[in-house]
Each structure stands twice: as C-alpha cells, then as structure tokens.
C-alpha cells in the first residue's frame, strides 16, 4: 500500500519542485516504485526539472475529467524503471480540480506505487488544499530566511488542522560559510523555531542550477546537494542516517577566524 507525501512550503521559490524531483528520483534509485504528481495547475514546472517536458500527452486535469485513463497520462522516465510523472495542465487553473477528486486519484495510485509525491503550489489557497487532500505525510521545505520560515510555520499549522500528523522539515539552501559568520540562521535555529522534526539539510550548491538546466536530478551524485538528497530519501524510507558534515575540512586559521566572528 503506497504512501502519499506532499512537498509543500507556503512561500514560492524555496525549492519544492527541485526537492520533489530529487527525492522522487532518489527513491526510484533505491528500487521503490514512485510517481510524481505536479499539482500546480497553470504553472507547470516539474516536467522541465525532470527533463520530461517533450513527452507530455495527457495531464492531471485530463485524468480528473476522464479524458484519458491514468495509465495513459503517466510519463515513464526512461532513465529509471520505477519512476513516473503525472504532469500538470498548463492552460487551466486551480479550480479545474477539487480536493475530493485529488484524494480519489491518490487512493487509486496507492495500489500501484510505493510512493506518491505531490508537488504543491505556493500559497495556501485551493491549489494547496488540492495537493494535501490525499496526503499521509508532508515534507515542508524552507530556506533559512525570515519570510520562508514564517510561511513554513503557517503551513505546519494548516497541515495539523487538516490532520496530517507526520510532518518533516527540509532546510534548503543553507550556506555554512554564512552560518559560521553569524549572517544566516542555522538549521538548528530554524528547527527550534518551528518545533518539527528535521529530515534533511540541503546546502546551497551550484550543481543544483546545473542539473536543473540539464533536466537531470542530481540526487545520488557526488555533489553535496546530491548526497544530502539521497540521505533524505533514506530517511523518508525510515532509515536512521546521520546528517552530513557540511563544514568540510577547515584549517587552523579559518577556525581561529570563526572564533573571532562569534558574538
């Protein structure tokens, strides 16, 4: 029986789609059968991040409206035998779908897949309600910024109110050099404020931009972000994986500098 996970954040641009693409691809690499659903109707993005934009025939709204069967709309990722994408519609809007229909869709996919990942749109309106309708658990993505953490707090409250009890936090785009200088909140700061369980810390990594340019998720690669995403996948599956040391090796002079910068 598959598990439905919604990836959400409240604020836009913090990395929901990138996280969905990488966690989904990572779980498929770990031999799980995975389907990614882009629920951002009208602003389709997950297809390009996955590099599958040229293969879309039918979309989420077609499935909901009964224009095609689910099987026909699912795009099989040829790079991984267990990975599928259900793209969003680009020419419609959020009102084309309602939460009951989304819940029904999730339930139909549960028999077939181990993980059903819902890429949630920004905001807390109907698009959000559609995305969380069928979810068993949530990954809340935030960056260490006041605005993003504030929105994440609101989202966590709304998830609780909608009886989604298992909520985990991903702190994205952390810059350790700035944290050391005291110019960025640390993941500990964010966790302390939001009071939810941390499932991953993804460092700011230019390889993410490169991989998004190419339409190939970097999960599992040798880059810092690639390793961080793979660790998140293992934790999603219930493994106990220690957090990465993002500091790297620092020499004596650098460490002395850290001491002086603290205040």
């Amino acid at each position: 029986m598959g598990e439905v996970i919604v990836i959400t954040s409240g604020k836009g641009g913090v990395g929901k789609t990138t996280t969905t693409a990488n966690v989904g691809t990572g779980l498929a690499k770990l031999d799980k059968k995975v389907v990614l659903i882009d629920t951002d109707i009208g602003l389709r993005n997950l297809d390009v991040v996955m590099g599958l934009e040229n293969r879309i025939v039918y979309n989420l709204v077609d499935v909901i409206e009964g224009n095609c069967r689910i099987k026909q709309a699912l795009i099989k990722d040829k790079r991984y035998p267990n990975l599928y994408l259900l793209p969003s519609a680009q020419t419609r809007d959020k009102t084309a779908v309602n939460p009951e229909q989304m819940k029904k869709l999730c339930d139909e996919l549960r028999d077939e897949f181990d993980y059903i990942l819902m890429d949630c749109p920004a905001g807390i309106e109907q698009g959000f309600r559609n995305a969380i309708a069928g979810a068993d658990r949530a990954l809340v993505v935030t960056t260490p910024e006041v605005s993003a953490v504030r929105d994440a707090d609101r989202i966590i409250g709304l998830l609780e109110a909608n009886e989604i009890r298992r909520t985990h936090l991903i702190v994205n785009r952390l810059r350790m050099d700035m944290v050391r200088r005291g110019d960025m909140m640390s993941s500990d700061d964010v966790v302390e404020i939001l009071a939810v369980d941390l499932i991953g810390i993804v460092p700011d990594d230019e390889n993410i931009v490169i991989s998004t340019n190419q339409g190939e998720p970097l999960v599992g690669s040798d880059s810092m972000a690639g390793k961080a995403y793979m660790n998140i996948c293992r934790r999603v599956m219930g493994e106990d994986v220690p957090f990465l040391d993002l500091n790297g090796r620092r020499n004596l002079l650098q460490r002395l500098g850290d001491i002086f910068r603290k205040n």
Binding site: V146, V149, R150, R181, D183, S186, I193, N263
Partner: peptide, 16 residues
C-alpha cells in the same frame, strides 16, 4: 554588531 542571523531569529520569533 549583532549578527544578522540572530537579528533574523529574533524578528522571526516576534512575528510568529
């Protein structure tokens, strides 16, 4: 100087 990370944290706590 109070580090900007701590400023952010304090502001966030108040607004929340």
């Amino acid at each position: 100087r109070k580090s900007s990370g701590n400023v952010a944290k304090d502001r966030l706590k108040l607004v929340l």
